[in-house]
């Protein structure tokens, strides 16, 4: 499972970085989204990968660390809000600057 997880994270972040470097606002937003997926999964994995273990102590002998799950939730909420803001800002930029380049100039 570890190898699969690592490869998934690698593909996600590589695609994210590639899209980010496209320097057009829509690919940049998509790239940041993919990157934040990778980051969230990574944070989740920092509680160690186990399957079928509850995040509550006492239900079973083995339990998952609940803290990274809480961190991921916080990170998702924040990331979601800022991505929404960035989308609106990009649309505004498209209207005001007449260009979807992140520098706001026609290339």
């Amino acid at each position: 499972m570890e190898a699969l997880f690592a490869v998934t994270l690698g593909i996600l972040s590589a695609s994210g970085v590639y899209l980010l470097l496209r320097a057009r606002t829509f690919p940049v937003v998509m790239g940041l989204t993919l990157l934040s997926y990778a980051v969230n999964l990574f944070l989740f994995a920092m509680g160690r990968l186990t399957s079928g273990a509850p995040a509550v102590i006492g239900r079973s002998a083995e339990y998952a660390d609940p803290l990274p799950q809480a961190l991921v939730l916080t990170a998702i909420v924040i990331g979601f809000a800022i991505t929404a803001f960035l989308l609106v800002l990009s649309l505004r930029g498209l209207g005001e600057l007449k260009s979807d380049h992140v520098d706001g100039e026609q290339r």
Partner: peptide
């Protein structure tokens, strides 16, 4: 808006 897009994208990263 131009400065804002840079600022938001960089800080999100």
């Amino acid at each position: 808006v131009r400065a804002g897009i840079h600022y938001v994208v960089l800080n999100l990263l």
